[in-house]
Design a binder for these strands. Structure first.
Lengths: 161, 161
DNA sequence: TATATATGTTAGGCTTACCTAACAATAATG
DNA sequence: CATTATTGTTAGGTAAGCCTAACATATATA
């Protein structure tokens, strides 16, 4: 019985783990601020997440993730980061838009797709020869000018196609 | 005053344009079947979309898109197709998963990102020299073996980076 | 320590998007 | 053309996720 949670509940988990990282103590109002919702909404969400065994929270106390909640939160955060990387590094989308888009897309991407996308990023990041691979530089140029910037070597050497 | 519609309403528009393409006449039950919802839900949605001037629908009649609705539906369908292409062509995700993921992601991707992703696909599809670009073949191999398959030409010719 | 301020919870309401059941109109068929 | 089957609509209900207003607790300070 693998339990599922909604996108919105995923957002709460993600906010909690994010806040935990930089503040150690996580309070209802911090979560609300992070997500742009009011305290009663946070209280309600925490009730739901508690029932599912993802969060520990006693009345008026601070918020903790259970082991299970922590694991799930990390998965979501990882997906988020993968998407941001893709959007920024490959598509050259600005930080703000990239993270906004990632925030929404992270809930709709399947496990397998997330994995493959992550591989794709790794492939790019571990590119041999300097930083950005040649083909991506060629894409940058294609974007700017609509024209392809060919690798000079290929251009001069490959004729038969 | 640019009006916005919800993800779900986007799905209805998309279903309508999809059905229109292959059946000419679109009925409430077709939409319901396509989206996996019951007729009353479709009726309700059509009411909403009609009020927004995106759909024409008289009681017990068939469903049409207005000019505005058609335009919007096409935008959504385009985003969907772009995502499917990316997932299939770049990440090599199977048809079924790709279209499922795209169905969800198409609502969360921003306009600018959709455009850039589309450029990226075009860049790949219009690759000079045979079909799949070398760097993507290299990625395929990276996925399979964890190792990078270098372009032979670069390998032998390029030394200074 | 009494009180004020900040934070959290509860109660009750709203919206979206779904549902079932009951009813209405259209289409198909004896 | 009358009846049945199919399709569509309306009415009314549910769940998620948000809100405000009112109340409760905790914390800080006079």
């Amino acid at each position: 019985m693998t339990q599922t949670i909604s996108s919105n509940m995923e957002d709460y988990l993600e906010a909690i783990i994010f806040l935990k990282e930089k503040k150690e103590i996580v309070r209802v109002k911090d979560i609300g601020k992070e997500l742009g919702v009011k305290n009663p909404s946070v209280s309600e969400a925490l009730g739901i997440l508690s029932k599912k065994g993802l969060v520990k929270h006693k009345r008026y106390g601070n918020v903790e993730l259970t082991k299970k909640g922590d694991k799930l939160a990390k998965t979501i955060a990882r997906r988020h980061n993968t998407l941001v990387k893709f959007l920024k590094e490959v598509l050259k989308i600005d930080q703000k838009t990239a993270s906004q888009d990632a925030c929404r897309m992270e809930h709709s991407i399947s496990k397998g797709t997330a994995k493959k996308l992550n591989n794709f990023i790794n492939f790019i990041e571990n590119s041999p020869y300097s930083g950005r691979p040649q083909w991506l530089k060629s894409f940058d140029n294609f974007e700017k000018t609509g024209k392809r910037l060919n690798c000079r070597i290929r251009k001069s050497k490959i004729k038969n196609d």
